[in-house]
């Protein structure tokens, strides 16, 4: 194995561990910290099914963002949809043709939509970047990391497109490398620069995920304002530390 391949094997493991441990840690923290009070933004659902529907409209359709600003919605929604399509297309690098999932991954529709998603992704990201620069309010709230994050993902999308249309890489060898990571049977990585740039940026994205605003992805599901049921009169809501305060003075008995 080449030294470069060994380096990338190590980097990938470090990145995967950072991502999984980091995000799990954050999720466990969100679960551990109690929500002592009912703070649903109303009108709020009365049933669990209603909450699922509320999250569906938020996660799939970005409903609140749609109500807030159409431009950010257009760019943001297109970017996230493209991300999903690109993700599906990339499954072919990690799923073996023997797998029962392969027919799904191999579908023409999955592969061709994913093929063009890169352009849509760049379009969405460019729009979001433009808003950060040209809208005075958004410029005011942006930190260097907010611009860099967009540039990083643009870099990933750009190098991805380069490989798809201009500088093809050896995808058979690439798949062997990736599968090798999973089965601890390490293989050489093709060494063309565009691929290395692409993978380096992906590794960077995985590593900063748990320490950055990318936490919005899991965090979204832990906002009491959105997941709580609107039933405070029907069902008493009390946190552990709230109950401790009660137990001390006994005034609720």
């Amino acid at each position: 194995m080449t030294a470069l391949s060994i380096l990338y094997v190590i980097l990938f493991y470090v990145a995967m561990i950072t991502l999984i441990v980091g995000v799990t840690n954050k999720i466990l923290q969100y679960i551990r910290v109690p929500a002592p009070l009912k703070i649903a933004i109303t009108p709020a659902p009365l049933t669990r099914t209603g909450v699922v529907y509320r999250f569906f409209t938020e996660v799939v359709l970005f409903n609140s963002l749609w109500r807030a600003t159409k431009w950010t919605w257009i760019f943001g929604w297109i970017f996230h949809l493209s991300l999903l399509l690109a993700f599906f297309r990339h499954l072919r690098y990690v799923i073996s043709p023997d797998s029962f999932l392969w027919p799904l991954v191999d579908l023409q529709v999955v592969q061709s939509f994913g093929h063009y998603a890169g352009f849509a992704m760049l379009f969405g990201l460019a729009g979001l970047f433009g808003r950060r620069i040209f809208v005075d309010r958004v410029r005011y709230i942006s930190s260097p990391s907010d611009y860099l994050m967009l540039l990083l993902i643009m870099g990933i999308a750009g190098t991805g497109l380069l490989m798809a249309y201009v500088a093809h890489t050896d995808i058979v060898q690439l798949k062997a490398f990736i599968m090798g990571l999973f089965f601890l049977d390490w293989q050489n990585l093709p060494s063309d620069l565009v691929l290395l740039a692409h993978l380096t940026m992906v590794i960077g994205l995985m590593m900063i995920f748990p320490v950055s605003k990318l936490l919005h992805a899991p965090g979204l599901f832990f906002a009491p304002t959105r997941y709580q049921l609107d039933n405070p009169r029907e069902k008493r809501h009390i946190s552990e530390w709230g109950a401790e305060i009660e137990a001390k003075d006994g005034r609720n008995s």
Binding site: V33, A68, R131, R137, H216, G219
Partner: peptide, 23 residues
């Protein structure tokens, strides 16, 4: 941060999208 899930989550999840800026 240890007592209010809302605060802990809200400190982390803002992406500075600007949706709230004119509200």
């Amino acid at each position: 941060l240890g007592k209010y899930r809302s605060l802990q989550v809200f400190m982390d999840t803002c992406v500075k999208c600007g949706a709230c800026t004119d509200k």
